[in-house]
Design a protein around this nucleic acid. Structure first.
Lengths: 182, 182
DNA sequence: TGCGCAAACTTGACACTGACAAGATATGCT
DNA sequence: AGCATATCTTGTCAGTGTCAAGTTTGCGCA
């Protein structure tokens, strides 16, 4: 089989990129290294993604869509949703790291914006069901819920802080610490 | 004045690096660009910090020490401490971004480890005063508190989510959502 | 069937980066 | 005064992202 028309090059590049981001860091992702791993020329990735930023943006979109799908079925139980959020982040460290590095991404990309907005609204909608709509600080609930799970995922992934043995159990206990306005 | 013995080159390099990290991103920091801004040769920064990682580590240490100093006087009021934490992060976006990017840092650096540990213990100590020591999930309180402020800082800095006008007011309301075990 | 065109990929080049080695210059201590 | 040392420069190397131009392949259509 020749290297021409690899067939599934974009997907393979994204898979390798997720691996690299997970094992090293998002900024360690190199188009040339991805090409090397796929056995194609150094500028084959450029053809599919235009720029490095384009590739990272595609990876982030993939991540937001998968994350959104993972949490969208928990509208009733915000705590279970929070735990699922953290679990997803821990299971997909490469994607997660890229998703929250907007400076690496193309913020003008419509797919990125809508995928991210979808995940955000899924969360705010779930929070709204737990909040008293008459509360003056009603809007803060979504930020608090998101900050809690995003922050927990971030510190667990960063390893900058002593990590507990069972991170899922921790996620359960941490999400329980959230108070809603009602 | 010749360029030899600039006098304060390390500090100036770190200042420029913080600026670059804030206006672009941590990984956009280039030793050569820093040298250019300081008016020195492309490899003067290497002499002071050894590697790029060394420079970023120095920046992170500076950040942890300043952050630790900012929050260490709030042992009584954990909520005020949380707000201060978020305010500090928003006021020092360059430092904050580098601090939580351990993959960019030299994790074997003792100064880094102790500066980070000091900030962490300041927070856990403050949380412990709000927790019932007999509670089975007592340890989760520190993670929850830290996740909340760290997560809020992260999403506000990332700009990935619709940001409110008054972020300090939001920080006040969000920190109030934290529940302690007692 | 065969032709032509578009998509997929390669080759080559350029400016930029971090890192290293070796040399030049200024400062401070004795 | 003189010397050791810290500070900074110059030169070089491999690696990177990006662009331009060429080459190969597969697919639709006559």
């Amino acid at each position: 089989m020749t290297t021409y028309h690899h067939g599934d090059l974009p997907r393979q590049l994204l898979d390798s990129a997720a691996e690299m981001a997970a094992s090293q860091s998002p900024e360690s992702i190199s188009l040339r290294e991805l090409a090397r791993r796929a056995g194609v020329s150094h500028s084959a990735p450029v053809h599919h993604f235009g720029t490095r930023q384009g590739l990272l943006t595609a990876l982030a979109i993939q991540g937001f869509e998968a994350l959104g799908a993972a949490i969208e079925n928990y509208h009733d139980d915000i705590y279970a949703m929070g735990v699922t959020y953290v679990q997803w982040a821990l299971a997909h460290p490469g994607h997660y790291a890229v998703m929250w590095e907007p400076r690496l991404l193309d913020e003008d990309d419509d797919s990125l914006r809508s995928a991210r907005a979808a995940a955000w609204t899924a969360l705010t909608a779930a929070v709204a069901r737990h909040e008293d709509p008459d509360s003056p600080a009603e809007g803060a609930g979504a930020y608090a819920a998101f900050a809690l799970v995003h922050g927990l995922a971030g510190i667990l992934l960063s390893g900058a802080v002593p990590a507990p043995a069972d991170s899922v159990a921790l996620a359960r206990e941490v999400t329980q610490r959230l108070r809603f306005a009602r």
